[in-house]
């Protein structure tokens, strides 16, 4: 997982939206990171903090909302937290769990001046 590439993607989106809204400074960037996305948050923060230096996002706080990996069984319709990447329904044995949340990797919002 290239957290630096992610940080670049986040910064691109942040600068783009800031420009569209004529913002002068980005104080906070809110992210939605799903459990399944495999992001190493510390590494991401480190890369992000380095990358924003000299931009209007310098010093911006990265706020990460973790989204749990939830799946719904195609057979019994019940919802479960998916453990250890096990996509079989714990109750039906034959039912496959389709993920309903936990796969996000989005910039949710910006706090700007």
């Amino acid at each position: 997982m290239h957290e630096m590439a992610l940080a670049e993607g986040i910064l691109d989106i942040a600068l783009d939206y800031a420009k569209q809204n004529e913002a002068k400074r980005i104080a906070e960037v809110g992210l939605l990171i799903g459990e399944m996305s495999g992001v190493e948050q510390e590494s991401l923060r480190f890369s992000f903090d380095m990358l924003v230096k000299g931009t209007i996002a310098e010093g911006a706080k990265l706020v990460i909302k973790d989204v749990p990996l939830m799946g719904k069984c195609s057979k019994c319709g019940k919802e479960f937290h998916i453990e250890h990447y096990d996509f079989w329904c714990p109750e039906c044995k034959d039912g496959v769990l389709t993920t309903i949340s936990g796969r996000e990797m989005k910039v949710e919002y910006l706090e700007v001046d």
Binding site: A5, I13, M105, V107, Y109, L110, V112
Partner: peptide, 12 residues
């Protein structure tokens, strides 16, 4: 301070 809703995917 203003909040801008983004909801955009970071990666392709």
């Amino acid at each position: 301070m203003a909040e801008i809703q983004v909801m955009k995917n970071i990666l392709g």
